[in-house]
């Protein structure tokens, strides 16, 4: 049985903001299936009581003093922008009013 369906791959592409083509979807579905079957091996390990590792360095409380540092100039900040206007980054109209916080 396939680990992932073509529909799920299409959904992942949308979530990942990738406008993949139909042919690509076919290829990707097959490839992701092979990869997922292989990586699913992690499930063979008995690890219920094992704490997860998110960081390999044993550091905590790395904090910065609240002191102002130098900023970029607006010219530097906007230097790589594909489009800018009024010293701001210009983007096409936004469809989705998806504001989280």
């Amino acid at each position: 049985m396939a680990a992932i369906s073509r529909e799920e791959v299409a959904h992942l592409a949308r979530l990942s903001r990738l406008a993949v083509t139909e042919e690509e979807l076919d290829t990707l579905a097959g490839q992701l299936d092979v990869i997922l079957q292989a990586v699913a091996q992690v499930g063979e390990v008995t690890a219920a009581d094992i704490p997860p590792t998110s960081h390999s360095v044993p550091l905590t409380n790395v904090l910065r003093d609240d002191v102002v540092a130098s900023c970029l100039t607006p010219q530097e900040a906007l230097s790589g922008a594909p489009d800018a206007a009024e010293q701001r980054f210009r983007v096409p109209r936004i469809l989705d009013e998806d504001v989280a916080s």
Partner: peptide, 27 residues
């Protein structure tokens, strides 16, 4: 729209291995 431009940009800008990994990780 921005969403379409963003998706078109990433589709054109990323190669196949990057796309595979981004989708795998999203999953």
């Amino acid at each position: 729209s921005l969403e379409e431009v963003m998706s078109a940009t990433r589709e054109a800008g990323f190669g196949p291995e990057v796309k595979r990994r981004v989708m795998l990780g999203t999953y």
